[in-house]
Write a protein that binds this DNA or RNA. Structure first.
Length: 211
DNA sequence: GACCAGGCACATC
DNA sequence: GATGTGCATGGT
């Protein structure tokens, strides 16, 4: 068995199923995907809570909200001015193209939709793929900083590997399943947070030790 | 106080 | 195509 499958098997055997994404419903997931850019999820939760408390958790309401006002609500998530602009850009696209309907958006072919998402200023490959996988249940692998770091330390990719290169590796080795991609990515984040830290890796406790 | 967190766009060479 | 920089809060 190849190493990519081996890492998955070992991770899920030791850590168990992770039950991602920690948000309620596809719309919150899409919002969270932008809010969590280079930011911990606990801060994202605070931002979403603020919007929820103000009863603003809908595409139309956020679309009508001023950028400045939105920035105030999402402040705890950091980069609040940039993210407010990015969220507004996304809502304009979501409402303009799909009338704010997750069902309509989900009906589009995955490849085309990915291109459209990447066309929105503020949505890059990871955010687009997070939306596709975690909000719309499309079989697209999400590559993030943890994924790259773990795979680099296991000698599977070069340090400067591109997003596409890493994503391609998964596509080659794994069956194309949203459920599997979801679980695998969630496990990598768990391992990244708990063991594969940036400067102080705790390799001796890592489930992937000796792989 | 330093370091880190589920990126991205933009400028510059 | 590669490399550098700004964006910002909150937890450890």
């Amino acid at each position: 068995m190849d190493k990519i499958n081996l890492i998955y098997r070992r991770s899920i055997n030791v850590l168990g199923s992770q039950h991602w994404w920690p948000a309620r419903g596809p719309f919150e997931v899409m919002l969270g995907a932008i809010l969590t850019q280079n930011t911990s999820w606990s801060n994202v939760e605070k931002a979403i809570r603020n919007l929820k408390k103000a009863k603003l958790l809908s595409p139309g309401k956020i679309h009508r909200l001023s950028e400045k006002s939105l920035a105030g609500f999402i402040r705890p998530a950091g980069y609040y001015n940039v993210k407010a602009r990015r969220i507004k850009n996304f809502m304009a696209f979501f409402i303009g193209t799909y009338q704010g309907s997750v069902r309509k958006m989900s009906g589009k072919k995955t490849g085309l939709l990915r291109r459209e998402l990447l066309g929105v200023n503020g949505i890059g490959p990871e955010t687009a793929d997070s939306i596709l996988l975690y909000a719309l249940n499309k079989p697209v692998f999400v590559v993030d900083a943890y994924t790259k770091r773990i795979f680099f330390r296991h000698g599977l990719v070069k340090k400067d590997a591109s997003y596409q290169q890493v994503q391609g590796m998964f596509a080659c080795s794994l069956r194309k399943s949203a459920r599997l991609f979801n679980e695998y990515h969630a496990l990598l984040v768990k391992i990244g947070k708990d063991f594969c830290l940036k400067n102080k890796p705790k390799c001796s406790f890592c489930p992937l030790k000796s792989l």
